[in-house]
Structure formats: structure tokens, C-alpha cells
Amino acid sequence: MRAADLAVKDVSWAPGKSGQPVLHSTSFTVAAGGVLGVLGPNGAGKSTLLRLLYRFQPPQTGSIHVGGHNIWSLSARAAARRIAAVLQEQTPSFGLTVLEIVRLGRTPHRAAFSSSSRKDEQIIDRVLDRLSLRPLAHRDVGTLSGGERQRVMVARALAQEPQVLVLDEPTNHLDIRHQLEIVSLIRGLNMTIVVSLHDLNMADGICDEVLVLKDGYPQGFGPPNTVLTDYLVSKTFRVDAQRERLTPSGAAHFSFALPN
């Protein structure tokens, strides 16, 4: 399934009917195949926004469209063919192996009670190889390290073949090598990606656009090199931020200090 555009218009969310909004009216679009980074300090509303995108909870206002389809007008199975998520919270493995967890990604594409098809197994094989999980295929997921488990969750999402992939801090728990592998993977995927990040330098390197949140309010949206100014980063994260360009690569590097 090919990547699809993501259109979010005026979405907001608050706990209960009269609770204080956690996310205020937010709008943005991501072109098919684009990578959007969602940035902000703890409590900014990043995880709330992601929950709306992967259909964990409906927005109280506004709409979310993937490829022109309102995700809340689709069945749960149809939505799962379009959107997959990799979360920070890793659920118990219940004794399942890596292979069995990755196979779960094919569930939205199968009829009820049917077994894996040859196509399913081919997709699973490719994903295992792509994330270097073949040697771990028959290991109980509960015996893996945090980084290995994270790679398994990414593999399960890729096996789902979504049009939009939502990643919540995907490099958490990963060592430097596997962080680089995930970054390289994100750049090479043929799908629209929304990724929550704390690392501004990583966001500058892999994202086509960024959305910056603070206290549930959007602070800026657009290409990283225009949105991530010293002023906006300093104001949003309550630090003194300075952005420099590294030569000869031209990559951006932020340095931070506590304000006087």
C-alpha cells in the first residue's frame, strides 16, 4: 500500500466534557511520503496528538483524514490497514516469540480466523531481515533487551504495511548503532511518518517538517531550518539555545544552556 497524505484540521482534546484542554486546536498537513517531527517539552501534548492520529481516542473537535478518508468513518480493521503505531509503552509479550509478534502486524489484512498466507510470510521475512531480527525470530520477546524489543515493535508495524506510521520516541532504549539504523530506516520507508522526538538535531536531520507544541498549543509548523530558530527553541524549552551549522556536512547542531 502506498503512502498517503495526512490532513489534520482543528483537532483538540480534553479529559471529559469539562476538563482542561490538553491539546488546543491544531492543524497541519503532511504530504504522502513526508516525515513530520512532533517536538516539545514534557507535557506539551505530543502523546495526546499521537493518540488521536492512531485512533486510540477521538478528537473532541476537528478531523483527521488519511488519503482523503476520515479515519473515524472507517472500521477499526480498515483504519489499521492505513495507520500503524509504535509506542513508548511496551505491552507484555505473554510468552510470544519475535516471529509471532511480527506476524500480528498482518492481522488487519487477514479474514477472521484465517492463517498466514504465503504473501504474509514473505512480508514478515522481509521485515525480519530489514531490522536484523532473523537471529531472534524464535526468542521469547520477554527475554530481549529494551532496544531489541523496540526493534520488534517497529517490525510489527512495518508488517502491517500502513500508509501512515506513527512513532513515539522510536530511539528510546536504543544504543547508538541501532539509533542510526532506525534513523536510516525512517528515511527509506515509502510511507508517511509522524514521529515524536526529543532530539532536535535528529529532527533537523530526518524530518521534512516539524510541529512544535508547548502547553498544548502549536508554536510553529514547517521545515526545521525555518521553524527551529534560537528564539522559538529557547522559549519553548525554557533554555538558552544556539543553533550552529557544522562544516563540511552543513548539518545543524543545537547547543543548550540554562538561562541566567
Rank of each mutant, 00 (worst) to 15 (best):
V212T: 06
F237C: 08
Y54M: 04
R156N: 01
G250M: 00
Y217G: 00
A252K: 10
T91A: 14
K17M: 09
N172A: 03
Y54Q: 05
G67C: 11
E89A: 04
L144M: 04
T226K: 12
S249A: 09
A31N: 14
A203Q: 09
P218D: 03
M202I: 15
S249F: 04
Q20G: 11
S249H: 05
F94Y: 13
D5Q: 05
G142V: 02
V195W: 10
K214E: 13
R118Q: 14
G95T: 04
A257N: 14
A85F: 09
S116M: 11
N42A: 02
L144D: 01
Q122H: 13
G37V: 06
L232T: 12
D199C: 12
P259T: 09
L6F: 03
R81E: 13
D240Q: 12
G37C: 01
G67V: 11
W72L: 14
G95H: 01
E89G: 09
N225S: 14
G146R: 06
G37A: 15
L185W: 00
Q20T: 15
V86D: 01
I71Q: 00
S27N: 03
A84F: 00
D125A: 07
S93I: 04
T97D: 06
L36F: 11
I71L: 14
V66W: 06
Q57A: 14
V183Y: 05
V22D: 08
I101W: 04
Q219E: 06
T226N: 08
K17S: 14
W13N: 13
S114A: 06
A251H: 14
R51L: 03
M153F: 13
A78G: 08
Q150H: 04
A159K: 00
L258A: 14
F56A: 14
F221V: 09
L53H: 10
A84M: 03
L53I: 04
A7W: 08
L53C: 03
A252S: 14
F254P: 15
Q57F: 06
G188N: 15
K9P: 07
N260Y: 10
L50N: 11
N190L: 08
D120V: 10
S145Y: 04
G34R: 04
A84T: 08
R151G: 05
T229A: 07
V102R: 04
Q122D: 12
S115K: 12
Q242N: 12
D168E: 02
T48Y: 02
N225I: 07
S73E: 15
R238G: 14
L197K: 10
A84C: 00
I64N: 09
T229Q: 07
V210C: 08
Q150V: 03
L165S: 00
L174F: 06
G216D: 01
S145E: 01
A3P: 12
H178R: 01
